[in-house]
């Protein structure tokens, strides 16, 4: 069973990716869509497939992988099941960075300003969280610090958007808090993917260090683990993947929480196996949520975070309930 999980996860992501390409309001035929995508036949259909649906599906894949991977890495490093970029404020500070760079006009000066600003926001909050929660990552300190950072960043984002001279900006508070992949273009893919790739490489390479860390800090250090270096790789890796994801898709919550938990019993508790599995699982979850968004309300731009929260929030409550029983 454990060996068979990899082809299963990869197949699931592949099926959802294809479904994401083939489902949309225009209601195109299957053969027609694929011909347009691959051979470029049929003018309008090619535009729809290559410029509208392909970037959307690619971003679903990339953003989902980023969220799942960073959730697994943070849970592994802090040895805390509640660590997740959305819950502890990393996504909201990334959103604040992105909004600041957009509203100050910095994002218009050079293309990379937007993801870099979001990356800086994310890095700042990961550092702050690690500082507040301490090396052992106490659950209470982690969650309280996360709530405070989340609230502060959310308020600052709302403030900046409300002060914007653009009447549409204030309406976008929901996008930055809930996330959406609607009407993204290949430009966004090119903007986000390099950062997601670098961050993912960093996070995936922490697998063995995190494996050692499961034995406890002292044992891990006696085995030659450089804890400072590991911490920096987690901070930078998370900042890269979350910064880039949030800059183009907004803050999508709960994926990083739910996915590692679902996969842990299947692949085993070893972070080196859980990290890649969570990347695949995250991609599957976000692709599925993005398909659901289009099926449930095709003309409404329902936000991604609405669906992930519907699944994730009850799950979160269940986790807290279980922790309470353990602690009592």
């Amino acid at each position: 069973m454990r060996r068979g999980i990899w082809p299963l996860l990869i197949a699931l992501v592949a099926v959802l990716f294809m479904a994401s390409l083939l489902i949309g309001p225009a209601g195109l035929g299957l053969g027609q869509s694929l011909r347009a995508l691959i051979q470029g036949q049929g003018e309008a259909v090619v535009l729809v497939m290559r410029e509208i649906r392909l970037p959307r599906a690619l971003l679903g894949l990339g953003v989902g992988a980023a969220l799942g991977l960073s959730g697994a890495a943070m849970q592994g490093f802090l040895r805390n099941p509640l660590a997740e970029p959305g819950l502890i404020g990393v996504s909201s500070t990334a959103a604040l960075g992105a909004v600041l760079s957009l509203q100050t006009g910095l994002a218009a000066t050079f293309a990379l300003a937007l993801p870099l600003a979001a990356l800086a926001g994310a890095a700042l909050s990961v550092l702050l969280i690690m500082l507040m929660a301490g090396p052992r990552g106490g659950a209470l300190a982690l969650i309280l610090a996360g709530i405070a950072i989340s609230a502060l960043a959310g308020a600052a984002t709302s403030l900046v958007l409300n002060l914007s001279p653009n009447p549409f900006a204030a309406m976008e508070i929901v996008f930055w808090m809930m996330g959406s992949l609607a009407d993204r273009s290949m430009t966004h893919v090119w903007l986000a993917f390099p950062f997601i790739a670098i961050g993912s490489a960093l996070l995936l390479s922490t697998g063995r260090g995190l494996d050692a860390l499961t034995l406890g800090e002292d044992v891990a250090q006696s085995m030659g683990l450089n804890l400072v270096r590991l911490r920096w790789m987690i901070v930078l890796g998370t900042a890269f993947v979350i910064g880039a994801s949030v800059a183009v898709a907004g803050a999508v919550g709960f994926v990083g929480l739910v996915v590692p938990h679902l996969l842990r019993p299947v692949v085993g508790a070893r972070p080196s196996r859980l990290l890649p599995a969570s990347a695949l699982g995250g991609a599957a979850m976000v692709l599925a949520a993005d398909i659901a968004v289009r099926v449930v309300a095709p003309d409404q731009d329902l936000k991604l975070g609405v669906l992930t929260a519907l699944v994730g929030a009850p799950f979160f409550l269940h986790l807290i309930w279980r922790m309470r029983r353990v602690e009592a």
């Binding site: 006009g105 914007s164 001279p165 653009n166 900006a169 976008e172």
Partner: peptide, 11 residues
């Protein structure tokens, strides 16, 4: 377009 940035107008 209005002054200032917005995601709404990006489309």
């Amino acid at each position: 377009p209005y002054p200032g940035a917005s995601r709404s107008e990006e489309i």
